[in-house]
Write a protein that binds this DNA or RNA. Structure first.
Lengths: 220, 220
DNA sequence: GTCTATAAGGAGATAGAC
DNA sequence: GTCTATCTCCTTATAGAC
């Protein structure tokens, strides 16, 4: 009853590559480590993917695709729910941030994907940059429009800046959990994903809605 | 009148290493590229620093040290100025964020250091992590205390989370200027450092002062 | 302190048998 | 599709002359 698993070794390589890239970063990870982890032959990577760079792209797409799909799904549900009234900014931010964080809940694979996700932003070469633009273009467009609807008083440029800062905050959280744990001496634990998500949503929502300093009157 | 330049080649290596690391990342940069850029011999790096890892640490320290010193300086000036009244949160955030951004103003070296700074957070190995903790420990302690004074209504843990998110947003901005420029189709330019700083300070200040959701009533 | 020369190994990629 | 064997290149690091 084999419905075809699309080549067993190809999937094994992708799984192993995801783990190794997440742990080592793209540059330091070697294809020899990956094939060892996958239990396949060295030449298999070049047979199935052609090169290490192509493998990186494949892992990247497989990782980020479902997250972005889920983001758009949540946003659409949100827009349907609030078809008439205003779109709460916190809900929009949660639709963006939760799919990334919820991956961390399924312990093994989640943690790996989270680390990988952070690396994608951090270790940006020109090739990775082009991929990021391609993968995120639609998400950015859709969320920008939603945020514009949520916060009509904030200019489009301001929203763009703030959305970008939010991505940075989220990426930092994904990439570097030990940092916060150490600096807070254990009191703040990014591995408590629901707490982390709540903190991030609150921070980002407030940042998004910040007064635009067209005048000069900001007040704490 | 040589007042000793602390070994000419050592400085040349540090300068070149800073540039190469900033451009390539720590892992992909090779010491051969560095000695070529510095115009010194291959063996000089091992003579002066011992290993590539030690060179990374030296470059890191030289890069981050003045920034953190300036941060503390600005914070102390701020505390002196507001000895009695409350400490405006936006001013505290600016004291933290401006030294990093102002580096970018001196075009050549500034841009390199900014990129390097971003990489330090992004490309974190365990060794780099220990260094980050060491270099940032004092800064975090001092700014946490200041923020606590600025925002007595926000819990210490919340402040810690939010400070961490701010670091992520700033690092993202340092590391990945093309990302924002591309996504905004050129409208938002991180190379306009004063605009970028203003945007970041506003976003972070609002995020810092976000309502702590002790109850459940958040409102846009 | 600075150099040349080289050691010793890891990297990505490939040819060709099975 | 999978394997072995190997090619070629580049890496960090070091030994030892000057």
């Amino acid at each position: 009853m084999s419905v075809v698993v699309a080549s067993d070794t190809k999937e094994a390589i992708l799984d192993a590559a995801e783990a190794v890239f997440a742990e080592m970063g793209f540059a330091r990870a070697s294809i020899r480590q990956i094939v060892a982890a996958a239990g396949v032959n060295l030449a298999a990577i070049h047979y199935h993917f052609g090169s290490k760079d192509a493998l990186i792209e494949a892992v990247f797409t497989r990782c980020i695709g479902p997250i972005n799909a889920r983001r758009l799904e949540l946003l659409e549900a949100l827009e349907a729910e609030h078809a008439k009234g205003p779109l709460p900014v916190a809900a929009v931010m949660e639709a963006f941030l939760e799919p990334m964080q919820e991956m961390r809940e399924s312990k093994a694979k989640g943690a790996r994907m989270a680390r990988l996700y952070g690396r994608l932003v951090g270790e940006s070469t020109e090739a990775l940059h082009r991929m990021l633009s391609r993968q995120f273009g639609n998400v950015v467009k859709r969320f920008s429009a939603a945020l514009k609807r949520s916060l009509p008083a904030v200019s489009e440029d301001d929203l763009m800046w703030r959305f970008y800062f939010t991505v940075g905050a989220a990426a930092h959280l994904m990439m570097d959990p030990p940092g916060l744990k150490k600096l807070s001496r254990g009191r703040c634990d990014p591995d408590e994903v629901d707490v982390a998500l709540q903190q991030l949503v609150r921070f980002a929502s407030a940042g998004m809605a910040a007064p635009s300093g067209d005048g000069k009157g900001e007040r704490t």
